[in-house]
């Protein structure tokens, strides 16, 4: 079969100790038997390793941070699109999703397809409104509370027992054992990601995760559960293993079918010793460990691209249990002239 030629742009090329999903996503796409893709990397920072991985990424461009606003971003993408004729764009950072969702119509006008959650799906799964989400869709969630000011810290003890989790709107989560620590983490998080801060009840159990893909009509296109085997000091998976956990898949299907989830997602759940499952967080995109799904038999990156192109995708229900991923680091070698080109011209 002749492979279809397409151009795919992706962000999240920061394959560092706290990796973004861009590079694993691209690996998945590269292994597609249906596409012969040209890959365009979109980078925010000049040392995102993906930029320099020329075997994976054909060309990289710097793009403005989401905080500069969608106008500025669109102008940049318009420029890139003139050169590259992008077919599909897959954003991989939480913080940029809002901007891309708001811009998806304009991207479509440029001929660029995306496959993102709707604004409503995106908003209602926010950490700050997780209790409402749980109620609406009948999913167990830990208690949580949104706080705006340090003055609210002393009263937290009336609601939850210490330790509690202190989380940012987009990223970062810390376990705090005292009000002092809550204050410290609050300042740390808010200086980077702004207010509010989310305080979450600490549920004791094992963290389990699912990478999944919804077709926007309530069908689960693919889902692979995983448990982290070893965690880095940043709380990221160093190694993980696919699980045969039908309960977890049922919950995933329930969430996708009730919310009619559109696009990639990562569910973070806690399985308690009593075998209860608590939903901790929904990340509205494929996670950095998405390549495990490819290894276990479900090429979710490829499926996501097909959905974006409007192609029909048959749901995948099988995967290989006991597939492991072990993350490793690797030193790329390149000349300073590459860094120079990227930094001064914004493209490489």
């Amino acid at each position: 079969m002749e492979k279809k030629k397409i151009t795919i742009a992706a962000t999240g090329l920061n394959n560092i100790d706290n990796p973004g999903p861009g590079v694993p996503f691209i690996r998945g796409v590269r292994e597609s038997k249906e596409f012969d893709s040209r890959i365009i990397g979109l980078a925010y920072e000049n040392l995102e390793p993906g930029i320099y991985m020329h075997n994976l990424i054909d060309k990289s461009y710097q793009i403005p941070y989401p905080s500069s606003g969608s106008d500025v971003l669109l102008r940049r993408i318009e420029y890139i699109n003139k050169i590259e004729k992008i077919d599909v764009l897959i954003p991989n950072f939480d913080a940029e999703l809002y901007t891309f969702m708001k811009s998806s119509d304009k991207l479509k006008e440029m001929g660029i397809s995306t496959f993102l959650p709707t604004l409503e799906q995106f908003e209602e799964r926010h950490k700050s409104v997780l209790p409402e989400f749980g109620k609406k869709y009948d999913i167990k969630v830990p208690g949580s509370k949104t706080i705006f000011s340090e003055r609210e810290i002393p009263d937290l003890v009336n609601e939850y027992k210490y330790p509690m989790l202190v989380k940012g709107k987009y990223y970062d989560a810390y376990v705090a054992y005292t009000p002092e620590q809550v204050r410290m983490y609050m300042n740390k998080i808010s200086s980077k990601w702004g207010l509010p801060i989310i305080i979450q009840e600490f549920v004791v159990g094992t963290e389990v995760n699912v990478v999944a893909l919804g077709d926007g009509n309530g069908i689960t296109i693919g889902a692979v559960p995983m448990r982290k085997q070893y965690i880095t000091d940043k709380g990221k998976a160093w190694a993980g293993i696919t699980l045969d956990d039908t309960n977890l898949l049922e919950i995933t299907n329930k969430i996708i079918s009730k919310t009619k989830w559109r696009g990639g997602m990562e569910l973070e759940m806690i399985k308690t010793n009593e075998d209860d499952y608590y939903l901790i967080e929904i990340n509205p995109r494929l996670p950095a460990w998405v390549y495990l799904s490819v290894g276990a038999g479900q090429n979710l990156p490829e499926a996501l691209v097909k959905l974006a192109l409007g192609e029909k995708v048959e749901p995948m229900t099988k995967y290989k249990n006991g597939t492991l991923f072990i993350r490793y680091s690797y030193d790329l070698i390149c000349d300073i002239s590459e860094f120079e080109k990227l930094t001064l011209n914004g493209e490489l």
Binding site: E340, T343, L344
Partner: peptide
């Protein structure tokens, strides 16, 4: 110093534009 305005100090590893 390159024509494009990239300045590289090989003794410290610092670069400037």
């Amino acid at each position: 110093v390159s024509e494009s305005g990239f300045v590289f100090d090989s003794s410290t590893g610092d670069s400037f534009s």
